[in-house]
């Protein structure tokens, strides 16, 4: 089973490319009560220790695929089911320092059954999480 918080402890890690640490990832469980077409997720903002990483610059690993922010809108048939996680890939040369960080996320949902003025609606989480290496 997954942790109650949207942000998961496991999965929070630095990521490397070509031998260099290029950024970090944050793992989120589906925080909505229903699974959603990925096209209904308008993006995910990440903030670590007050440093903002806006949704548009992040990449998204969903169901084995890797997508840029601009691709989300077209993913009508890819779903993010309840009880599963996705990884938000955040570019930051050198990654994060090992230790405990305060991580915040905002998932921007486009719920067709919400009044139009609340599309998108932000779903927030925040907690401490640990980078080991």
């Amino acid at each position: 089973m997954l942790e109650r918080s949207h942000i998961q402890s496991s999965g929070f890690d630095n990521v490397s490319e070509g031998g260099a640490v290029t950024g970090f990832r944050v793992r989120l469980r589906q925080p909505n009560y229903r699974g959603t077409r990925v096209s209904l997720v308008e993006g995910i903002d990440v903030t670590v220790d007050g440093e903002a990483f806006p949704a548009a610059r992040n990449r998204y690993r969903i169901g084995g695929g890797d997508y840029a922010h601009g691709e989300l809108e077209g993913l009508l048939d890819l779903r993010w089911p309840v009880g599963t996680t996705i990884d938000v890939m955040v570019p930051r040369p050198g990654g994060l320092t090992p230790g405990v960080h305060h991580v915040e996320t905002v998932v921007w949902y486009h719920h067709p059954y919400f009044p139009p003025q609340f599309r998108p609606i932000p779903v927030r989480d925040g907690r401490h999480a640990t980078i080991i290496l």
Binding site: R37, L76, Y113
Partner: peptide, 11 residues
């Protein structure tokens, strides 16, 4: 079930 009539911002 859900009929997501606005299946994305543009669709």
């Amino acid at each position: 079930c859900w009929i997501d009539t606005e299946a994305s911002r543009s669709r």
